[in-house]
């Protein structure tokens, strides 16, 4: 559907959870270094689709996945794919912030340490760089050793973004990342997304149409586990081709 090079390529993906068919024959190419938003009513499978991208879905539940998800041409669900290196490629921002049970500094340094960075000076540099990247540095530079849970929710979400960015991913996955935030924090995060899209491929799940319109280049409308429409933001939101999309955008179905 797009002429640009896909970063994530989904082919005939079917997902069953506890015997329920949650995602049906999903095929989609997520363009490189663009913002793509999944929209759709609650329970339509948009979060599930997002979670198939970093294999957080099939951890130890009753989940059956068939089809392919290719990231840079590598199939995530092929048995010899190493999952941790795939996940490292993708930063995750969840519905509400989950700061790890450690101080602010250690939260940002966490990924780098896991991947073998031991040098104190390097870690200092990484922490400062990414905290500046999410405009949190000035707010926390004097209390880096405080538990991360002492930050406000909005600050925590930016910290989580910094933690994800610090392992140098190529893709950022956002699962309704602003749904727990106040309007000002939401604006902060949205501005960051716009700044980040030069360097990263962003995939967002959102139920706020205005947000989808503000930040995304492409929009995917999902309904009852199927992709109904995929196109540029203008196409999908202003000139939807499908009746279902039209109804959703106008607010008839939610």
């Amino acid at each position: 559907m797009t002429t640009e090079k896909p970063h994530i390529s989904v082919k005939n993906l079917n997902v069953h959870i506890d015997g329920n068919h949650i995602l049906k024959n999903i095929s989609i190419d997520i363009p490189d270094k663009k913002v793509t938003s999944f929209i759709g009513p609650s329970g339509c499978g948009k979060t599930t689709l997002l979670k198939t991208f970093n294999r957080l879905l099939d951890r130890n539940g009753n989940v059956e996945i068939t089809g392919q998800v290719l990231v840079d041409g590598v199939d995530l669900y092929s048995p010899d794919t190493e999952v941790t290196s795939i996940r490292k490629k993708m930063g995750l921002l969840s519905q509400r912030p989950f700061p790890l049970p450690m101080n602010i500094y250690d939260n940002v340094a966490y990924g780098a340490r896991i991947h073998g960075q031991r040098d104190k000076k390097e870690l200092d540099k990484i922490v400062e760089h990414y905290l500046r990247g999410v405009s949190l540095w000035d707010e926390v530079k004097d209390r880096l050793k405080d538990p991360a849970t002492r930050l406000s929710i909005g600050q925590q979400q930016r910290l989580c973004l910094a933690r994800g960015l610090a392992v140098e991913p190529e893709i950022i996955l956002g699962d309704e990342p602003t749904s727990a935030l106040d309007p000002i924090s939401t604006q902060h995060i949205e501005e960051l997304f716009l700044k980040l899209k030069d360097k990263y491929t962003l995939v967002l799940v959102t139920h706020i149409l205005r947000q989808a319109r503000r930040v995304s280049d492409y929009i995917v409308f999902i309904y009852m586990g199927e992709i109904i429409e995929f196109g540029t933001t203008e196409e999908v939101l202003l000139n939807p081709k499908e009746k279902l999309t039209k109804d959703y955008v106008k607010g008839y179905i939610s």
Binding site: N54, L56, K88, L92, F98, L100, P101, M102, I114
Partner: peptide, 27 residues
């Protein structure tokens, strides 16, 4: 321990055991 915490740790490329050690047990 909220699953989101485990996912946060796993999503930066931590292994299951690293996640247990640094996040689940600590929490």
């Amino acid at each position: 321990v909220p699953d989101g915490l485990r996912e946060a740790s796993l999503s930066v490329g931590a292994t299951q055991w690293e996640t247990i050690k640094h996040v689940v047990l600590k929490k």
